[in-house]
Simulated assay, not measured.
Amino acid sequence: MSKMHRAYQPILPCGNKYLQQKWDKTYYDEHKRKVQSAKPMVDTNSPQTYVHLNLKLKKLQLEEERLTVIERDNRLLLEKMSAIMRTKGRVDNTNNYEAKSLNKEKREQELQKVSKENQTIGDRLTRCEPQYRVEKWHEDWAKAEKYMDSIAKYPRGWYAMQQSEKNLKGKKKVAKKESVTGGKAKRGKDDDSDRRSMGEMETEKQEEVKKDNIGSIRESEDSELDHERKEKTENKDPQKNLKEKEKIAKKESVTGGKAKGGKDDDNDRRSVEETETEKQEEVKKGIIGSVRESEDSELEREKKEKTEDEDQQKVDDKEEIQENKDNKWETEEDEDLTKLKEDDNKLLLDEDETKYDDSFKDDESHHSEQSESEHEADDDKEEPNDAEQDPDVE
């Protein structure tokens, strides 16, 4: 590093270095003074304090007023309580106050005035006659409908009639299908009800047979118990047993016929059971026969339904074919109408073109005539000029 020279070296070239040093020094001192005495651009001091934010006089005033109201109310209550304690206390239960109104007559007069005005306005409205005649409107509309009917190609309501006919055909098809399916469902329900009734009859007969068997078993058990009781009593008292035996012998002589009748009853019961079994077998055979008949009837019904469905399908096919023909006819008519419209448009365009060509030809002929007349006029002008030039040339 080379040492700087002790002499003052100014930045810019100058005539006298000493004077330039003095001037630079004074300029630098002034700059330092300004920097030291410079004030900040941002105020960093504490904000100013306001008295009304710390001491809220309005709030104190309102609080004093509230306290005075409370003191007054408390004083009035104390006075009333002291008056009640000093006296017996009374209740103001009078209810004979009369309603008073200062402007009652005025309001009645205004109401009468308004009612009269409304009545007069209503009379005027009812008396006024209409300016338009509805009958004339109906007559004009009837004339317009006549004109529209005379102009229209198809009658009025033609499209709606076709749509209603199509809807009726569709409803008939749906009703036929529902009737076919409903007949099947009803037949199935009837067969199920017949089978259920036959099963219920069989269960009732079986229950009756069981009850009869249970009753016979209980009777036999009761007779055995009675026999055992008699044997016990005979072993205890022989004298009583002799007396009882005599009584029993008398009873048996009386009821001998009854015992024979009991045997006959057993035989009758057996015959009844046999007849019941025979009846049950007959019922089973009848059930089997009815089931077979129901199956045969179901087969026949299915065959009939198949034939009906086939017939219905044929009818539906015919109707569809007819509908297709009708639709084709309608489409052909629409195509014919469109063709006619196109032909009309073409004719109109041809007529317009011919008119335009004629007008254009007329314009050209007129223009050509004008040009010819102009040429002739120019030729007439040139001829005298030539005549003037001829003598000079000679």
Score class of each variant (00 low, 15 high):
residue 16 N to H: 03
residue 267 N to R: 10
residue 223 S to N: 07
residue 28 Y to M: 03
residue 356 Y to A: 15
residue 228 E to K: 10
residue 291 V to H: 06
residue 156 R to H: 09
residue 214 I to P: 00
residue 387 A to R: 05
residue 73 D to L: 13
residue 53 L to T: 05
residue 49 T to D: 06
residue 74 N to L: 15
residue 65 E to T: 04
residue 185 A to G: 03
residue 211 K to I: 06
residue 273 E to N: 10
residue 234 E to M: 07
residue 316 D to L: 08
residue 256 G to D: 11
residue 113 K to S: 11
residue 245 K to V: 02
residue 40 P to E: 00
residue 220 S to L: 13
residue 246 E to M: 09
residue 41 M to V: 13
residue 122 G to M: 10
residue 79 E to C: 01
residue 214 I to R: 14
residue 181 T to N: 13
residue 363 D to K: 14
residue 160 A to E: 09
residue 164 S to D: 14
residue 85 M to R: 09
residue 296 D to S: 11
residue 244 E to R: 05
residue 179 S to G: 09
residue 246 E to F: 03
residue 103 N to K: 11
residue 7 A to V: 08
residue 28 Y to C: 05
residue 380 D to V: 01
residue 255 T to W: 08
residue 133 R to E: 13
residue 333 E to Y: 06
residue 56 K to I: 03
residue 98 E to S: 14
residue 124 R to C: 03
residue 46 S to P: 01
residue 99 A to V: 13
residue 268 D to I: 06
residue 334 D to W: 03
residue 119 Q to R: 07
residue 40 P to W: 01
residue 13 P to I: 03
residue 106 K to F: 11
residue 241 N to S: 15
residue 108 E to P: 00
residue 388 E to A: 05
residue 148 M to N: 04
residue 224 E to S: 11
residue 117 E to L: 10
residue 143 K to E: 09
residue 8 Y to P: 01
residue 370 Q to D: 04
residue 196 R to H: 04
residue 143 K to C: 09
residue 305 E to M: 02
residue 187 R to P: 00
residue 321 I to M: 09
residue 276 E to Y: 05
residue 166 K to Y: 11
residue 326 D to Y: 00
residue 277 T to W: 06
residue 109 Q to S: 04
residue 213 N to W: 05
residue 344 D to R: 09
residue 61 Q to C: 06
residue 168 L to P: 00
residue 316 D to A: 13
residue 33 R to T: 10
residue 35 V to P: 00
residue 381 K to Y: 07
residue 118 N to F: 08
residue 294 S to N: 11
residue 202 E to G: 01
residue 314 K to M: 06
residue 15 G to P: 02
residue 58 K to P: 01
residue 136 K to W: 01
residue 36 Q to L: 12
residue 134 V to G: 01
residue 171 K to T: 04
residue 306 K to D: 07
residue 279 K to C: 02
residue 104 K to Y: 10
residue 280 Q to M: 04
residue 128 C to T: 14
residue 131 Q to F: 14
residue 163 Q to H: 03
residue 351 E to H: 11
residue 382 E to H: 05
residue 90 R to C: 07
residue 94 T to E: 10
residue 105 E to Y: 02
residue 341 K to Y: 04
residue 291 V to I: 15
residue 23 W to V: 13
residue 9 Q to N: 09
residue 389 Q to T: 10
residue 44 T to Y: 15
residue 64 E to C: 07
residue 341 K to R: 15
